[in-house]
């Protein structure tokens, strides 16, 4: 069998320092002025720099939806966007959904319908469901099932997730 040798990059190229870029984000209603390295994803910024670990990393490739947050009201996989390109945006994470001690209707519905088990996909599911409601496209269970399919749940809570989303969807018409 042959010897397998990987290519060797030049140390000089690798050792270039990474400059930071100033950005301003409104995160859950608070204005945050941040110095961010351009290679930092929004997800890693939230989790590692802002200690908003409610937003989850499940694949880092936009395949599972665990990192879903709302940017200016639209749901997005935060692992697939660099933080610097979101300069000036308003970001809502799971930590910003409740109003004080009062849970957001989706949060309450998820608890009521046992729409999670391990809880790891849950923040993404809830943010995604709010994004879905904002879009105003879903009216039926089939719509919800289809349009929530970007958020995987390995515990298999889908039927309960759909029940929870339908509860809120029917109570709260599209905005």
């Amino acid at each position: 069998m042959p010897t397998l040798t990987a290519s060797r990059p030049l140390p000089a190229e690798a050792s270039r320092p990474i400059d930071t870029i100033p950005i301003t984000l409104t995160v859950n209603g608070s204005v945050r002025r941040l110095q961010v390295e351009p290679w930092t994803t929004l997800l890693d910024l939230l989790r590692d720099k802002l200690d908003l670990t409610g937003t989850k990393k499940g694949c880092d490739h936009g395949q599972c939806g665990a990192c879903t947050v709302l940017i200016d009201g639209r749901r997005i996989n935060s692992c697939l966007t660099l933080a610097v390109v979101r300069d000036g945006c308003a970001i809502t994470t799971i930590e910003g959904m409740a109003t004080g001690a009062d849970l957001h209707p989706l949060q309450a519905a998820f608890i009521e319908h046992d729409a999670f088990q391990c809880g790891y996909c849950t923040p993404g599911q809830i943010c995604s469901a709010q994004g879905l409601i904002n879009e105003g496209r879903a009216t039926s269970r089939d719509d919800v099932r289809e349009l929530m399919s970007g958020n995987l749940c390995r515990c298999g809570a889908y039927t309960n997730i759909t029940d929870a989303v339908m509860d809120v969807l029917q109570a709260e018409p599209a905005r």
């Binding site: 200690d51 989850k56 799971i94 930590e95 849970l103 949060q107």
Partner: peptide, 21 residues
């Protein structure tokens, strides 16, 4: 009854292994 850890899980307060500061 509903899960007693439900609030932690739906608010993002529940910390998993990679989330401790």
């Amino acid at each position: 009854i509903s899960r007693v850890d439900g609030r932690e899980k739906v608010t993002g307060a529940a910390r998993y292994a990679a989330e401790y500061v």
